[in-house]
């Protein structure tokens, strides 16, 4: 008999396919219903616009009574995201409710992008710049938006954003991490 968590996750997936919220998508990995990958598109008219951010969601058999562990795989620069990609978001911790589903999680993270909570900084530099130097903050965000296309292209051969970046730079493979100073700037202007 399937466990309640696996049954629920199948339903979450079906729901996400039939009635997808704007700007997010997600699916279980091929061989494990408890491990998902998701993509969040940066909300329009925010510094995160045009970003295609990858995330991993790890569920346990205790889902939905306990929340999944959600992390950004794409590099992120945000006051509430730790260096390892973990997210400081109340609904994923002490305000979790079993009535949330994957769609609710992903849309909450999407809104967090442009509505950071500077009171619980996970990245103190991002929090500081967000409050004191918005111009520099947005510049840093722009960098990770551009990196998100590269990572996307690197991992998915036929990714949608491929045409927008210089293919030579994708070819750089392992070196992508080091090109954080405007390597692909303006390619989507």
């Amino acid at each position: 008999m399937t466990t309640p968590s696996r049954r629920r996750l199948m339903r979450d997936f079906k729901k996400l396919q039939e009635d997808p919220p704007a700007g997010v998508s997600g699916a279980p990995t091929e061989d494990n219903i408890l491990a998902w990958e998701a993509i969040i598109f940066g909300p329009q008219e925010t510094p995160f616009e045009d970003g295609t951010f990858k995330l991993s969601l790890e569920f346990t058999e205790e889902y939905p009574n306990k929340p999944p562990t959600v992390k950004f795989i794409s590099k992120m620069f945000h006051p509430n995201v730790y260096a390892d990609g973990s997210i400081c978001l109340d609904i994923l911790q002490n305000r979790w409710s079993p009535t949330y589903d994957v769609a609710a999680i992903l849309t909450s993270i999407q809104s967090l992008l442009d509505e950071p909570n500077p009171n619980s900084p996970a990245n103190s530099l991002a929090a500081q710049l967000y409050q004191e130097n918005r111009r520099e903050y947005e510049k840093r965000v722009q960098q990770i938006v551009e990196q998100s296309w590269l990572n996307f292209g690197e991992n998915e051969g036929d990714a949608v954003m491929k045409d927008d970046v210089d293919t030579d730079e994708i070819g750089g493979g392992q070196d992508d991490d080091r090109m954080d100073e405007g390597g692909a700037s303006g390619s989507n202007a």
């Binding site: 309640p4 049954r7 629920r8 339903r11 729901k15 939905p64 079993p98 009535t99 949330y100 589903d101 609710a104």
Partner: peptide
């Protein structure tokens, strides 16, 4: 006004 399908899933179960 409970979140529709997640709540009904608990009920159905």
């Amino acid at each position: 006004g409970f979140p529709d399908w997640t709540c009904t899933d608990f009920c159905e179960y």
